[in-house]
Structures are given as C-alpha cells and as structure tokens.
Computed example of a mutant assay.
Amino acid sequence: MARRRFGERRIGHAGTLDPSATGVLVVGIGNATRLLRFATAGRKTYECDIVFGIVTNTLDAAGETVATHDMRLDPSGVAEAAAAFVGTISQLPPMVSAVRVGGRRLHEIARAGQTAAREPREVEVYRFDTRPTDDPLVYRTRVECGAGTYVRSLGADLGAALGGGAHVRSLRRTRSGAFTVAEAAPVAEAVLREPAELVRDLGQIRLSGDETARVRSGTRLRADRYEGSGPWALVDPDGILVGVHERSGDRLRATVLPT
C-alpha cells in the first residue's frame, strides 16, 4: 500500500508489526531506507491484554485454542512472575513469526502445517507491568523491550510460569524508538518527513554553512571536537540531514549518506 501511496518501490521498516497488531510502524521511503538501521535498534513499547487459561496455536486471539487451564490468580503473584522476565532473557521465536529458517519464513512453514527447528534468542525486557481488569483471568500489560522481542511469547511464557497458559489479545505498539503512537497516521493519510527524523535518536552535530559544503564535497571533519565514538547525525543550518558519521581515528567518517 505504501508503494502505491508514494510511487516508490524502495520501502523498508524499523521492525515488523504482527498482522493482528496495531500501532507504530516506522517506514522509510527511497534513499531513506539506508537510515532505517539506526531506527531499528531503539526500544519499543507495547500494550496488550494477556488472557490466562487459554493457549492458542498462534499465541494470540487470532489462533485456534489448543489447550485450556483452570487458573487462580492474584495481582501480586502475576506481577512477581512478570518481574522475573525483566532483563536479558532467552526467547524462542514463535512459529507464526517472520524469522527465516532454511530460506522460508516461519509463518509460511506454519501455514503449510509444518514445523521447523528454532534457535532461542537473547532479548532485552526493560519493563513488564501488569494490572488486573474486571475479568480475573485478563490482565492489562505494558511491555518495554529491545528489538526482536516477541510480546506474544512473553504472554505465553508468563502463563506457563504461573502454572497454566495464556495468549495475547489487542496488541498495540505505542512507541518505536523515538516515535510514538501520537505521531502515527494511517498510510493513506501519512506525509513524508525529512530523513533526519529517522536518526533523531542519535547525537546531532549542526554544521555551519562552510562545514556543510566541505562535508558534502568529501572533507572529513576533525573528531577531537566531539565526545564519544558516535554515530552522529550531521545536519546543515536548516536542519537538513547531510549524513551519519562516526569517529575514524582523528576524523569523522561517513557511515550513511541520505542520497
């Protein structure tokens, strides 16, 4: 849909979003796709309901029920169990994910009625907050995590940790890196932004007019003016992105140019 909307075949995104999920999906168009890797690694925040007692084959409400459990929960016990998942954890990608195994995506293999061997991955969970609802088996959840974390798997694993099972419903990504759901718009209503928006999580160096001309002609700036190793987003006096640079010896070297 984005290709038709903007008449551009080069489209990329900063992290997949489940078909049944809603919320923020950061999209790069044309040359801006080169900058997406700087937006991909940012923290992501999700909200969802975890429904305890029912396990589905997709770990969410779109799947078929494969098991049920009689569970008795209390808010403090759920919160304590969720807290055990905060930190660096090992997570098995679900069969309905977009991970490739043998050149095929897992969800394609699953739709064909097959299974595939999957390798656990280390992911970061920074927050896993739960609160009860009017339904004693449904908890409203907020998860802040690193790239590559599957919230559906977190929900299922929390259910197992509490002696039963669970699935996720109403999954919504409310933040992706520096981008929030308040800024989001449907593709049909979206407007293009400056490429500098994709790297606004990076440290920024605002160049003078003379420095801008020198950098665009290939001159490397001295690095001793800046702390750290970068990368930095270099912008001209009008805030237009000139490039992403990092330290290379005593100079700044272009990592990505927007054109």
Results as ranks from 00 to 15, higher is better:
residue 1 M to N: 11
residue 5 R to H: 13
residue 5 R to E: 09
residue 6 F to E: 11
residue 7 G to R: 12
residue 8 E to G: 06
residue 10 R to M: 04
residue 14 A to V: 01
residue 14 A to H: 01
residue 15 G to T: 01
residue 17 L to H: 03
residue 18 D to H: 07
residue 20 S to D: 09
residue 21 A to P: 11
residue 22 T to F: 02
residue 22 T to E: 08
residue 23 G to I: 05
residue 23 G to A: 04
residue 26 V to Q: 00
residue 30 G to P: 12
residue 33 T to M: 03
residue 36 L to V: 01
residue 42 G to K: 05
residue 42 G to R: 04
residue 44 K to L: 02
residue 45 T to Q: 11
residue 46 Y to Q: 10
residue 46 Y to V: 10
residue 48 C to E: 00
residue 49 D to G: 09
residue 49 D to W: 07
residue 50 I to S: 01
residue 50 I to V: 14
residue 52 F to M: 07
residue 55 V to A: 11
residue 56 T to L: 10
residue 58 T to P: 14
residue 61 A to C: 08
residue 63 G to S: 08
residue 64 E to W: 05
residue 67 A to K: 12
residue 68 T to M: 09
residue 69 H to V: 07
residue 70 D to R: 15
residue 73 L to P: 12
residue 73 L to H: 05
residue 78 V to P: 10
residue 83 A to S: 14
residue 83 A to F: 04
residue 83 A to H: 10
residue 84 A to D: 11
residue 84 A to E: 13
residue 84 A to N: 13
residue 87 G to C: 08
residue 88 T to R: 12
residue 90 S to R: 15
residue 91 Q to A: 03
residue 93 P to T: 01
residue 93 P to R: 08
residue 95 M to L: 14
residue 98 A to E: 02
residue 98 A to L: 07
residue 103 G to P: 13
residue 105 R to L: 01
residue 106 L to N: 01
residue 109 I to T: 04
residue 111 R to M: 07
residue 112 A to G: 10
residue 112 A to P: 14
residue 114 Q to V: 05
residue 114 Q to A: 12
residue 115 T to M: 07
residue 118 R to S: 01
residue 118 R to V: 07
residue 123 V to G: 00
residue 127 R to D: 06
residue 127 R to N: 07
residue 136 P to W: 02
residue 137 L to W: 02
residue 137 L to H: 09
residue 141 T to W: 01
residue 142 R to M: 10
residue 143 V to H: 02
residue 144 E to Y: 05
residue 144 E to C: 09
residue 145 C to F: 01
residue 145 C to E: 02
residue 150 Y to S: 06
residue 151 V to A: 01
residue 152 R to V: 03
residue 153 S to C: 09
residue 153 S to Y: 02
residue 153 S to L: 06
residue 153 S to G: 04
residue 154 L to A: 01
residue 155 G to N: 03
residue 155 G to R: 07
residue 157 D to A: 09
residue 157 D to H: 06
residue 158 L to H: 02
residue 163 G to S: 10
residue 164 G to L: 06
residue 167 H to W: 05
residue 167 H to S: 06
residue 171 L to F: 03
residue 176 S to Q: 05
residue 176 S to N: 08
residue 178 A to L: 06
residue 178 A to Q: 11
residue 179 F to V: 08
residue 180 T to K: 11
residue 184 A to F: 00
residue 185 A to L: 13
residue 186 P to F: 00
residue 186 P to A: 00
residue 186 P to S: 04
residue 194 E to H: 09
residue 196 A to T: 03
residue 197 E to Y: 04
residue 200 R to Q: 07
residue 201 D to Q: 13
residue 201 D to K: 11
residue 201 D to V: 08
residue 203 G to N: 11
residue 204 Q to V: 15
residue 207 L to R: 11
residue 209 G to Y: 06
residue 210 D to E: 15
residue 210 D to I: 12
residue 213 A to F: 09
residue 215 V to R: 12
residue 216 R to W: 05
residue 219 T to A: 15
residue 223 A to H: 12
residue 224 D to V: 13
residue 228 G to H: 10
residue 232 W to P: 12
residue 234 L to S: 06
residue 234 L to W: 05
residue 236 D to I: 09
residue 243 G to P: 13
residue 245 H to E: 13
residue 246 E to Y: 10
residue 246 E to M: 13
residue 247 R to W: 04
residue 248 S to A: 14
residue 248 S to R: 15
residue 250 D to K: 15
residue 252 L to T: 11
residue 254 A to M: 15
residue 255 T to S: 15
residue 255 T to V: 14
residue 256 V to Y: 03
residue 256 V to D: 04
residue 259 T to G: 14
